[in-house]
Amino acid sequence: MLKARVIPCLDVKDGRVVKGVNFVDLRDAGDPVEAAAAYDAAGADELCFLDITASHEARGTLLDVVERTAALCFMPVTVGGGIRTNDDIRALLLAGADKVSINSAAVADRSFVGRAADKFGDQCIVVSIDAKRVSGPDEAPRWEIFTHGGRKATGIDALAFAEDVVRLGAGELLVTSMDRDGTKIGFDLPLTRAIADRVTVPVIASGGVGTLDHLVEGILQGHATAVLAASIFHFGTHTIGEAKAHMAAAGIPMRLDPSELAGPR
């Protein structure tokens, strides 16, 4: 049986983890590769790097991070942030990424999703959807795509966009509620579920995780097949192991294999 996935997400800027990772004794809490290896050993099901480096020139540092991670971690890695061309994707895949997450480039030009999927296969193209609820409390719920970290409205309906990019070849959707991101009050479950029930591809719930119950809700109520979180793991509030055990106890099929990767390499 396929298991639900727990995916820690590391924000990387100029080759460094933003804010650092404090859940384990690392020599360098800001080194994304050390953090990735620690998550690998802890049983994370996938790892996500989100590159928020401002300048295109500095992207070499990200490729270096991905290369060094692939040398240490035998787990799937998704990389997002600033991906605009098939050449960007090729460079990341060659460095060792398994999937790439496309965000603003897909909003600006949906056909890019199709070109990327035709070249690299649907299975490695994740479209990252940042959505905010725009309907009033008494209206039927409606969500819109936002860019620039949730600051800029696009007028694009999130559900219609989700269906469209899947039709074009997205193999997975990363759905982030910009209303919930950073709030620790849980996923926007109606948003997650509305998209998950409408598309044939897997959906990753993101934005708002503050407790382990939130992870359970993302799967059981949001109908996601994977959950992504950052701060509850980075700051040591909970370990990956605790998260997976909690989800398993709630009846969700989880991968609880012993890891042999914690030892010397």
Binding site: M1, L2, K3, A4, R5, D45, D122, Q123, G171, E172, T200, V201, P202, V203, T225, A226, R255
Partner: peptide
């Protein structure tokens, strides 16, 4: 209800 691609960990 099962999604395609088959994506993730399985026995």
């Amino acid at each position: 209800a099962l999604k395609v691609p088959h994506m993730g960990w399985n026995t």
